[in-house]
Design a binder for these strands. Structure first.
Length: 113
DNA sequence: GCTTTGACGTATG
DNA sequence: TCATACGCCAAAG
């Protein structure tokens, strides 16, 4: 695993519970602006057993990236709702659950920057 | 090596 | 909100 992967994993792991982030935001956070696809590809390769909140990563539109109705899609919806994140038609309102949304959570929850 | 593909993003109409 | 176009780049063939 290279440094880019490690930073992407770190960025994803830094998303607070009950919050979601976009692929682009993760890439930027990992120091790889414009490499949103790299984040998606990496998650596609990530084994299910990986201890990572992959389900908190959505498209910039708030849409779940995986095919509607697929196994991953339903699993992601389930995990999100388990954290009180609202999922309607495969989509999450970023205005409320995004990192800079209305909820009174601390941003990123990571004090190291 | 070249082409295709893809858990994406932004701009534009 | 939907569609189209273009940028991006690592893997797979």
């Amino acid at each position: 695993m290279n440094d880019g992967h490690a930073r992407i994993y770190a960025a994803i792991a830094a998303i607070p519970a009950g919050r979601v982030a976009s692929y682009g935001a993760i890439a930027a956070r990992a120091g790889l602006p414009g490499r949103a696809r790299l984040v998606g590809r990496l998650l596609g390769e990530t084994p299910d057993g990986m201890r990572l909140p992959w389900y908190r990563v959505l498209r910039a539109s708030g849409q779940i990236a995986m095919a509607p109705g697929s196994r991953g899609f339903r699993e992601q919806s389930r995990l999100l709702r388990a954290e009180w994140i609202e999922v309607k038609n495969g989509r999450v309102p970023l205005s409320r659950f995004g990192l800079d949304g209305d909820l009174d959570h601390a941003l990123w929850g990571m004090p190291d920057d």
